[in-house]
Amino acid sequence: MQVAVVTGASSGIGRSAAVKIAERGVGVVLTYSSNAQGAKDAVAEIESRGGTAVALPLDIGDASGFPAFRDAVAEALRTTWQRDTFDHLVNNAGFAGMAMFEDTTEEFFDRLTSGLFKGPFFLTQTLLPLMADGGAIVNTTSNSALPHITAPGYSVYASLKGALTVLTRYMAKEFSARGIRVNSVAPGATRTRFADNAFERNPEIIPELARSFALGRIGEPDDIGAVVALLVSDDGRWITAQSIEVSGGQNL
């Protein structure tokens, strides 16, 4: 049985990706930070559909914890799937942050850099020895890094997501010797717990925002999770080094 590691999977896009990947017969190690109950619920959902999953805590903004996390993944692989390796990695964990350029502090800059770029970089490096050849990696970026989506206040966030998009291409080049494919997905505005549950707290903004989408609505987690699951599956076997916007034509 193949196994995938999906970070930030206690809710939203990560949870959807974990469930969609599990639906394809793949075991899932999913991570959570503050939302332990959400992670338990995700495991229960996967198990209710006949899949297998294990939830592990991970702070993507603290690289010092990555070696211990790698050991926990190795233990889960041995005890749950009787394996020494896993096949796929979805670097989805992260957090939003908004500040106008002139108000951006060094602390804010460093916190976002640790979570959105340094974290995925060194987590991948730490887990790579456990990855089997021929697997796949998907990095969750954002269409805020693309030219047609430029919102004031997101200069740091979008720049770091852009850096992760470039890193995806370099990972794909270097890991290709092992047959590991690497792609990124760039969601548009999506109904998740992101940005402190902004859509749930401010539902009145949704209709206006939906008008900016060619397909007439904002994204749902399953819209993106399904694409992530495809990319790590055999259906995506000839796709690598690509950044795929999954946004329903936002600002088209």
Results as ranks from 00 to 15, higher is better:
residue 1 M to P: 00
residue 1 M to S: 12
residue 2 Q to P: 00
residue 3 V to A: 13
residue 5 V to G: 01
residue 6 V to N: 03
residue 7 T to C: 15
residue 7 T to M: 14
residue 7 T to P: 11
residue 11 S to V: 03
residue 12 G to P: 14
residue 13 I to Y: 15
residue 16 S to E: 11
residue 17 A to D: 05
residue 17 A to C: 12
residue 17 A to P: 09
residue 18 A to S: 09
residue 26 V to C: 14
residue 30 L to F: 14
residue 34 S to K: 06
residue 34 S to L: 05
residue 34 S to Q: 13
residue 37 Q to C: 04
residue 37 Q to T: 06
residue 40 K to S: 00
residue 41 D to M: 09
residue 49 R to I: 00
residue 49 R to T: 05
residue 51 G to N: 01
residue 53 A to N: 00
residue 54 V to F: 07
residue 54 V to D: 02
residue 54 V to L: 03
residue 62 D to K: 03
residue 63 A to E: 04
residue 64 S to C: 02
residue 64 S to L: 08
residue 66 F to N: 01
residue 66 F to Y: 10
residue 70 R to N: 08
residue 71 D to R: 02
residue 71 D to L: 04
residue 72 A to S: 11
residue 72 A to W: 04
residue 73 V to G: 14
residue 74 A to Y: 08
residue 77 L to V: 11
residue 78 R to P: 13
residue 79 T to W: 08
residue 80 T to C: 14
residue 82 Q to L: 10
residue 86 F to A: 08
residue 91 N to Q: 09
residue 94 G to V: 07
residue 95 F to W: 06
residue 98 M to R: 11
residue 99 A to Q: 10
residue 99 A to I: 11
residue 99 A to E: 06
residue 101 F to S: 06
residue 103 D to M: 06
residue 108 F to S: 10
residue 113 T to Y: 05
residue 114 S to Q: 11
residue 114 S to M: 08
residue 115 G to F: 04
residue 116 L to S: 13
residue 117 F to K: 04
residue 118 K to S: 07
residue 119 G to T: 09
residue 119 G to V: 12
residue 120 P to A: 03
residue 121 F to E: 01
residue 121 F to C: 06
residue 121 F to V: 15
residue 124 T to W: 03
residue 125 Q to V: 13
residue 125 Q to K: 05
residue 128 L to P: 15
residue 129 P to D: 08
residue 133 D to Y: 06
residue 133 D to S: 11
residue 135 G to A: 10
residue 137 I to N: 02
residue 139 N to W: 06
residue 140 T to Y: 10
residue 143 N to S: 15
residue 143 N to E: 14
residue 143 N to I: 14
residue 146 L to S: 00
residue 147 P to I: 15
residue 156 V to N: 07
residue 157 Y to M: 14
residue 161 K to S: 14
residue 161 K to G: 15
residue 164 L to H: 02
residue 165 T to H: 07
residue 166 V to N: 01
residue 169 R to I: 10
residue 169 R to T: 13
residue 171 M to H: 03
residue 173 K to S: 08
residue 174 E to A: 12
residue 179 G to N: 13
residue 180 I to V: 03
residue 181 R to K: 15
residue 191 R to G: 11
residue 191 R to S: 10
residue 194 F to M: 10
residue 195 A to T: 08
residue 197 N to K: 10
residue 198 A to F: 10
residue 201 R to H: 02
residue 201 R to C: 08
residue 207 P to G: 07
residue 210 A to T: 15
residue 211 R to T: 06
residue 214 A to T: 11
residue 214 A to Q: 12
residue 216 G to I: 11
residue 217 R to M: 09
residue 221 P to S: 04
residue 223 D to H: 04
residue 224 I to Y: 07
residue 225 G to S: 12
residue 225 G to I: 01
residue 225 G to T: 06
residue 229 A to M: 02
residue 231 L to S: 02
residue 234 D to I: 00
residue 235 D to W: 05
residue 238 W to H: 09
residue 239 I to Q: 01
residue 239 I to F: 05
residue 244 I to P: 07
residue 246 V to Q: 03
residue 246 V to I: 13
residue 246 V to K: 08
residue 249 G to T: 03
residue 250 Q to R: 03
residue 250 Q to F: 13
residue 251 N to W: 14
residue 252 L to S: 15
residue 252 L to N: 10
